[in-house]
Design a protein around this nucleic acid. Sequence first.
DNA 1: CCACCCATGTAAGTGGTTACATGATTAG
DNA 2: CTAATCATGTAACCACTTACATGGGTGG
Lengths: 183, 183
Amino acid sequence: MSLPHAILTALLEKPSSGLELTRRFDRSIGYFWSATHQQIYRELRKLEGEGLIRALPSEQPARGQKKAYEVLAAGREELARWTAASQDPKPQRDALLLRLRAAAVVGTEGLEDDLRRHRELHARQLETYREIERRDFPPGRGGAEDRLRHLVLRAGIDLETFWTQWLDHALAEFAELDVRGRE
Amino acid sequence: MSLPHAILTALLEKPSSGLELTRRFDRSIGYFWSATHQQIYRELRKLEGEGLIRALPSEQPARGQKKAYEVLAAGREELARWTAASQDPKPQRDALLLRLRAAAVVGTEGLEDDLRRHRELHARQLETYREIERRDFPPGRGGAEDRLRHLVLRAGIDLETFWTQWLDHALAEFAELDVRGRE
DNA sequence: CCACCCATGTAAGTGGTTACATGATTAG
DNA sequence: CTAATCATGTAACCACTTACATGGGTGG
């Protein structure tokens, strides 16, 4: 039950239409809560029905016409309530770790290439995050909002750093297993 | 599409009944691919229907009677195929990071307690992983299977280490924001 | 006027969660 | 005999994914 709250956050940062939201999810919020345009449109209608957001009155609401939304007071309250509410962490699900465990039983044949590919994907994401950090969070520190957003970005940077390092470690292990295997 | 493969892996490690699998998911495989007993029973029947596993012939198949399964050759092949197949990483979804970003807009009121709670949960999980490491992977290194399984465990240890450290960092930041706020 | 992109939407299917049901076995 | 627990199962629901549809505007 987090997508509506992701959308409320994005709309509070800046009122937007569905497609604008979709793009911002691709670049920013989506780094830790991804969503497709189908999900976003559905949820926007639901939030409007619940009275948490409203369409900006400006224009004609025809199909194919841009429709921007803003958050109402009830929406801001709901977001504050959700943010403060105690929530248990979701159980983990990571397919790559599962595949490695499977490989311990059925063999590592073919896995190494994909590990290498994942390493590159994580390295690229890490570089993206670092660019955002250079651009948006220069050394002289800003206000409370900036510091919180920087904290979130640091989590992304540290997570991608972890994955690239761990995958390097895994690939080194694979190389050694190969050598032993050929002996 | 990973739950069937998680089950195949677990059954190859040791043929088991549904409930035994459920318990093992709670302790081990579930650390990176969680599943409830309902999911597991449903999937076991599906895998049996597809001819990837079979019920061990021993006993009467009545309701309330234990029924153990083992993996057939076709199941092992399917697992090997899946393990080697290239797969894209799933888009991230982390509610805690989302809440922090929301807090940058609606305020941090009430969040700190839950951050502290999460920190303790991650610290506890880290301790659990470390105990497993001491018990199952003593310094003198074992064969290829053990090294792969150890690699997976290391990912768990490093991830929980990251989270505890990041949450410490976040809590320190909160403490500082509080001081500034009161000035 | 045609191809392409913008913007919003529908529909079907999958995987996971939550709540509940039921028979068998065991401890007190 | 009863309550608790073991073991398996059903059903409803919800979030997300994937594939497709449709109207409006714009450039060649």
